[in-house]
């Protein structure tokens, strides 16, 4: 498949079934790899400071399911979550992967990076002699990787781990690496965004990114733009409380300044999303999530973030 067609498939708004993209990815990648004799993507996955929700989100991928991603798309060489090896043997596997696949592997980082106290708030591996902090590991692996992918909002921008008062001095991966980081943000990530980004990396290299480093394939438009309840907004019909069927702007919805394709991508085998559940979008893909979104149920103009001038975050619409 040509890149142009793939891009179209990722950003299509309407289809017979909402999982056209994820259903299509596996055959496209398999076909591509067969024709060009390309190997799977070597991936090193580093878990740092987060809730572990992004590896759970990844387990929730459907069409392709997790086993198919392992089979056809990636060689997951190191992952604290999935690997069978443990202890010093796991560390050995990591070191070997870095030396053998230097300049070829994709580094996936899940979680924010604490920087205070030399990063001691997150130690990824301890040896008899020393502690390897997330800060050290991400710098070591980051300079050896072909591409760096931050999965989830903590790894992308700091996220809930870096929420005020941020006593661990946590930051996103981009702030500790002097290179391009592909930010696949979300709390958690939607598995389609992540698997779609992997497919793009495998077939066409780095995808086109927005100014926050996110693939335009999935983050080009605001939630508000394609929201099923947009007509309520345009007609000024607002929900009076959670559970109502009208526009959730009155209940704190962040849709107007949040970029993602949730309204038509949907979640967990594409069954629902927060607004369909009669609650507001809380802007979990944003650079300033969660501080820019709280109080969650207060309308956007009255949120705490709006009171402080100079706060990070963009106004899209």
């Amino acid at each position: 498949m040509e890149k142009k067609e793939f891009t179209k498939l990722c950003s299509q708004l309407k289809s017979e079934e909402p999982h056209d993209l994820s259903k299509a990815i596996l055959p496209i990648v398999a076909d591509y790899r067969r024709k060009r004799r390309k190997k799977k993507l070597p991936v090193i996955w580093l878990e740092t400071n987060d809730s572990g929700d992004n590896n759970i989100a990844f387990m929730n991928t459907t069409y392709p399911y997790l086993g198919e991603v392992f089979q056809e798309m990636i060689d997951l060489l190191y992952s604290n979550t999935f690997m069978a090896a443990q202890g010093p043997e796991a560390l050995y596997i990591l070191e070997e992967a870095v030396s053998k696949k230097r300049g070829k592997f994709i580094l996936v980082v899940e979680g924010a990076i604490p920087t205070k106290d030399n990063g001691l708030y997150n130690i990824v591996i301890q040896t008899p002699n020393r502690s390897i902090t997330a800060l050290e590991a991400v710098r070591w692996l980051g300079q050896a990787a072909k591409h760096v992918v931050a999965i989830g909002t903590c790894a992308s921008f700091g996220g809930p781990t870096a929420a005020r008062p941020n006593i661990t001095g946590s930051v996103g991966v981009r702030d500790v690496l002097d290179r391009q980081v592909i930010n696949v943000s979300g709390c958690p990530v939607n598995p389609d965004w992540f698997v779609g980004t992997l497919a793009h990396l495998l077939m066409y290299g780095e995808p086109e990114l927005d100014k926050l480093g996110r693939p335009l394939l999935f983050y080009e438009f605001t939630v508000h733009r394609h929201c099923q309840r947009r007509s309520y907004f345009d007609n000024q019909e607002f929900a009076e409380e959670l559970g109502d069927i009208e526009c959730m702007f009155s209940q704190g919805c962040m849709g107007p300044r949040t970029s993602s394709d949730c309204p038509y991508r949907l979640w967990i085998n594409h069954v629902s999303w927060p607004v369909k559940a009669n609650t507001p979008c809380i802007g979990c893909t944003n650079e300033d999530f969660p501080d820019g979104s709280t109080p969650f149920f207060t309308p956007l103009p009255k949120k705490s973030s709006q009171k402080k001038p100079g706060q990070k975050g963009e106004e899209n619409e």
Partner: peptide
Amino acid sequence: VKASQESHQILALFGGKAPHQHSFV
């Protein structure tokens, strides 16, 4: 992998997404 995904799908059907569902408040 599929059975656990389907368990989360039950949660998401009502909760909007999973993890970090929205409707149980």
